[in-house]
Amino acid sequence: MKKSLLLVTILLAAVACSADEVALGANAPEFSLVNAADGKTVAMKPADGNLKVVVFTCNGCPYAKAFEPRIIEIAKRFQPKGVQFYAVNPNDDAKYDVETFANMKARAAEKEYPFPYLKDGDSKVAHAYGARVTPHVFVVDGKGVVRYRGYVDDSAKPEDRKTTGLTDALNSLLNGREIANSDTRAFGCTIKWKS
């Protein structure tokens, strides 16, 4: 009985501590979510041979919105090179009306997203990746291994930009080089978790 209690406690502690970012070199969590743009389910298979970008973003956060054109620009530049992009919205839409499926669909259409805009309704995918803020980026290689995590760029202002984390990571991986800075600090709005 005591052992069972101890096991349950350890499991609960593991769940409670799941907010840590998924480790570099770890296998990326697989997910299947509905695309708000067209209502179709999109399955992300980590080890499908393609380089992938998973970006946690949303409709309401001004900092995420400031990066939106940049993410679209990077996607348009790297998609022809075989990189797949997944935008995932983990925010609670019961408390924040701006994050509803309908509003996500409207935003994807208005901004002409070149990637699926996926509803992570119960924030499970965000928890699995250990995303903390929007925008928060993870790059997964063709074998399903997490190779980069953190920011898109170190500044939302092009004139203040010193490092381009996501772009550098993708260029390095596409050219078979080590990523110079694979672990960066994602600034942004706290994810509005469903309580």
Partner: peptide
């Protein structure tokens, strides 16, 4: 600022 205050960017 994150380096200086030793925080992860979440405010």
């Amino acid at each position: 600022l994150g380096d200086y205050l030793k925080f992860n960017g979440e405010i």
